[in-house]
Amino acid sequence: MKQVLDFEKPIVDLKEKIAELKSFTDDSDIDLETEISTLEKRLEKLENDIYGNLQPWHRVQMARHQERPTTLDYIQELFTDFIEFHGDRSYGDDEAIVAGIAFYQDNPVTVIGHQRGKDTKENIRRNFGMPHPEGYRKALRHMRQAEKFQRPIICFIDTKGAYPGKAAEERGQSEAIARNLMEMAGLSVPIICIVIGEGGSGGALGLGVGDHIHMLENSTYSVISPEGAAALLWKDSGLARQAAETMKITSYDLKELDVIDQVIPEPRGGAHRDIKAQAGHIDAVLAGSLKELASLSADELLEKRWEKYKQIGDYQEL
């Protein structure tokens, strides 16, 4: 069953009506071709109106769409010979993060990403893509290996956040994320981070320090979920829609704030409509990033990374 978002309802209704008329035409002698073509034109316009004018809250819904492609979907489309490796070597294997190596255009790369489940059973196994400390430590282990073998690192970001649980605190959720931020700052290989769904706060950032940060058009990146922001700021989580606007969390907002490098376009109606087309858009941007970063020496890379982060923020000097 396809998940229909509330704002898409008029489109779905109209599509159903067209399908109805078509089957009616097929089954009887009455010709409704002109009606159908009028409706199809109206559908085209309606789709353009709705998808061409998405509000922040609509994009939040898109980013959370059940059928939205995940890290493993993109890995399959973009890379060859992906081998997944498990475990942080000190506690366990966190399936909320996948990591491994693969070929990208005949060159080996390290690929790491948050991984949501496609159904309830998988979601339980993967903890809904919300990592524990061992997930971040597994990621860091792979990043260090990438540095040793001088492979670029590609991170896919897609999480509601790091898991807020008792065990996570006991094992040092804060330290695990902080360590990744610090170590990623100093890795002498190119790091490219792509937000593909939800970029939830520190849990997203734990895979998010890099040379180039890109976002899919309908993904979000925020310090707190719109619901959380509304509860905290206005004591009413029902104001999430408003918070989504105020908090500036869409790809275009982040581009405007100079936090990300590129907005990667999505097929009309969202990434889930056409995974291959979406992978194609990512491919183009990724290839460009890798090419640009490959020309830099390790020192230049690190200096540019510092320059990049140094300028993020807004303040006055009196």
């Binding site: 990146y221 925020s222 310090v223 969390i249 907002d253 982060y309 993020i312 923020g313």
Partner: peptide, 10 residues
């Protein structure tokens, strides 16, 4: 918002 989050990386 996200500018605050990015101070963690910075």
């Amino acid at each position: 918002g996200v500018l605050s989050l990015m101070q963690m990386s910075k």
